[in-house]
Simulated scan of single mutants.
Amino acid sequence: MSTLIGLKEFGELFKTFEHSAWRLETRRGYASDRERETYREFVETGTVTWDLDNDWCRNMRAQTTAGKRVGRVRIVDNPPTTGQLYLLDNAKRNSATGEDMRNLWRADAERLQLPAEDFWIFDSRFIALLHFDEADTLLHVELIREPAKVMRYAQARDAALHHSSPFETFAALVAATQG
């Protein structure tokens, strides 16, 4: 059984989770990123001065300071897309708030048969499956609570974490291959 929720309700999940929130990011880019001033700054300069005092950062610091775990594995093409390079730079901001930021090459994700869709898993109890259109715009979120499906995504999380690299290590590897 699944339920569609709006983006506002989805945002509330990041304030109400009890012990863990983890995401697999699989897309080559996101429309929401391309709309940001920081994306333009990144395209022009190759780096961004990140705001560590916005709503997201304040909430993530509060959650991780309270002992909750937040993390992500971002799937990256070889060579990385501009959107993926932007997110690799953005990992500095996420990490500064206490998030565990990691990366995995797409070829490895495919070998591991990880899901092709983006999702968050909250408290190992339910999945927030993110639905995008062809232009990479988030349309809605599907909450999945069926234990067998949650377990499938939890197994994907465990495999992604095991085979991924911390973003700093991954960023150094990407920089070395691009230079």
Rank of each mutant, 00 (worst) to 15 (best):
R34T: 10
M151H: 14
E142N: 08
V43I: 13
E9Y: 08
D55K: 11
Q63G: 08
A135Q: 14
T81D: 08
A175L: 11
S32N: 09
Q178E: 13
G46A: 06
L52Y: 09
L161R: 09
K15P: 05
T49Q: 09
A135Y: 03
P166I: 11
L4P: 06
L173A: 15
T64F: 00
F119G: 00
R145T: 15
W56H: 06
E168R: 07
A160T: 08
D77S: 03
I75F: 02
R58S: 05
F122M: 10
V70L: 13
N59Q: 14
R157N: 10
H19G: 03
W22Q: 04
D123K: 05
S95I: 02
T65S: 12
R36Q: 13
R23I: 08
D51L: 07
T82Q: 14
L85K: 11
E110V: 15
S2D: 11
G83E: 05
A31G: 06
G29E: 11
R106S: 11
R93G: 08
T47K: 11
P79M: 10
T38W: 05
N103D: 03
I144S: 01
R27I: 10
G83Y: 09
P115A: 05
K92R: 15
P79S: 11
D53L: 01
W22H: 08
V76S: 15
A176K: 11
H140P: 00
S20K: 13
E134D: 12
E146G: 04
G71S: 09
Y153R: 12
W105L: 12
C57V: 01
L114C: 06
W22A: 08
T64M: 08
S32R: 10
L13Q: 14
G71Y: 09
Q178V: 01
V174S: 04
W22P: 09
E142Y: 04
Y39F: 15
R69G: 02
A156S: 12
W120P: 06
L52F: 05
Q178A: 09
T169N: 04
R157K: 12
Q113L: 06
S164E: 12
A176M: 01
A176E: 14
F122L: 13
R106F: 02
W105H: 10
M151D: 15
E168V: 15
E37G: 07
E25N: 09
W22M: 01
K92V: 11
A91P: 04
R74S: 02
K15I: 07
L88N: 09
D53H: 00
R152L: 11
G6M: 04
M60P: 03
D53K: 06
N94R: 00
A156Q: 04
E142D: 02
L52M: 05
L173C: 07
H162G: 07
C57M: 13
A107G: 03
R61A: 08
M1R: 10
L104P: 01
K15A: 10
Y153W: 10
R74P: 03
W56C: 05
E18N: 10
L129R: 13
A107Q: 07
V76K: 07
G67C: 03
L7G: 03
A128T: 11
A160F: 02
S164I: 12
A176H: 07
D53N: 03
A116C: 00
R34Y: 12
D133K: 05
V174Q: 02
A171F: 01
L161T: 05
L85D: 00
R152C: 07
R157T: 15
D55L: 10
F119H: 09
V48R: 08
